[in-house]
């Protein structure tokens, strides 16, 4: 049996808004293995971030968790008390966000930014805490860690700031890291350095990473498994090699074809017409049918497809199979 660190079962999340109820997540099932990377892909508005933040129960007030279970190390996160959640957040599951400049407190020195989380979760203060913080800065390969410790975030470049955020996230040795588009604002050269660093640290510290990104190429480079989401539903998931070698859902195929890469010499990119539909009264059946060229009338717009097993490590939800 595979060792599952996290298992999400039938999770549905609704958002109440003045326009109506938005069905942001619709019966999501996925799991994250111990010591591995899971990539979560899809356009913006597909529910990637919401599905990650419901793991920490960090959802806006308007959100209602309708149904489902989130099993982290066997315990249901949704049944935890606030106190138990506080122990979970930061020390068991950590997050790195997209914009490091807004994630760091600009009025506090880099050191204080890190010390805060060490004091909060490990109860360590003073010189001991400082030692841990500097060790973490070394670990994320920030040169001259002592000097950087007493600088302000604005004195660091974007890549360096993101390293500090990673240091904060990993200071308490979490067993899971949510990386939400954490390389999106960075240059390709910096992006590669940061990903390499996180890959190394992940192996050293044996943790699991949930990597949310819209860049499928990044998922193919560093993840073990992938989940493709569309408008709050999972349309395809499985082992990265299998999914990218044999993309089965029309949405996954289109997403892969829409990326201009340096290895292709295409004349025209295949774009996906239209936009992600509003999740208030979303399309019935498979939510992608409104943009799908292969949609079968009377079938795709009526009922959401059953799971089709392409092989033991690759599943797709589509009426074409």
């Amino acid at each position: 049996m595979e060792n599952k660190l996290l298992e999400v079962k039938g999770l549905s999340v609704f958002f109440n808004s003045y326009l109506g109820v938005a069905e942001v997540l619709d019966h999501i099932n996925y799991s994250l293995k111990t010591n591995s990377w899971l990539g979560m892909a899809g356009e913006s508005g597909c529910g990637k971030t919401v599905s990650a933040f419901s793991l920490l129960r960090l959802l806006p007030e308007a959100a209602v968790i309708k149904s489902g279970e989130i099993l982290f190390k066997g315990d249901d996160v949704l049944k935890k008390s606030n106190r138990e959640l506080r122990d979970l957040r930061g020390s068991e599951i950590s997050v790195v966000f997209q914009e490091p400049q807004s994630a760091l407190n600009p009025s506090k020195r880099v050191g204080l930014n890190i010390l805060e989380s060490i004091a909060l979760h490990q109860g360590v203060r003073g010189n001991d805490a400082k030692k841990i913080a500097i060790e973490m800065l070394d670990r994320v390969k920030i040169p001259q860690a002592r000097m950087r410790f007493s600088q302000y975030p604005y004195e660091l470049s974007g890549g360096m700031q993101q390293r500090v955020c990673i240091a904060i996230a990993l200071a308490c040795h979490p067993s899971m890291l949510i990386a939400d588009e954490f390389t999106t604002g960075l240059d390709v050269t910096t992006q590669q350095e940061i990903l390499k660093l996180v890959l190394e640290l992940q192996r050293q510290l044996t943790m699991s990473i949930l990597f949310i990104t819209h860049d499928l190429a990044l998922i193919s480079e560093c993840c073990d498994d992938v989940v493709v989401m569309y408008a709050g539903q999972i349309v395809e998931k499985g082992n990265v090699d299998r999914v990218f070698r044999d993309p089965s859902h029309p949405y996954t195929k289109l997403l892969l074809n829409a990326i201009p890469t340096i290895s292709k010499n295409d004349e025209t990119l295949k774009s996906i017409d239209g936009v992600v539909p509003s999740l208030i009264n979303p399309p019935k059946g498979c939510r992608f049918h409104t943009r799908c060229k292969q949609a079968i009338p009377g079938k795709c717009d009526v009922v959401f497809p059953e799971q089709t097993v392409r092989d033991e490590a690759h599943q797709v939800w589509c009426h074409l199979y």
Partner: peptide
Amino acid sequence: VVPVINKDR
């Protein structure tokens, strides 16, 4: 360093 979708990964 440009990430590519690598089929033989």
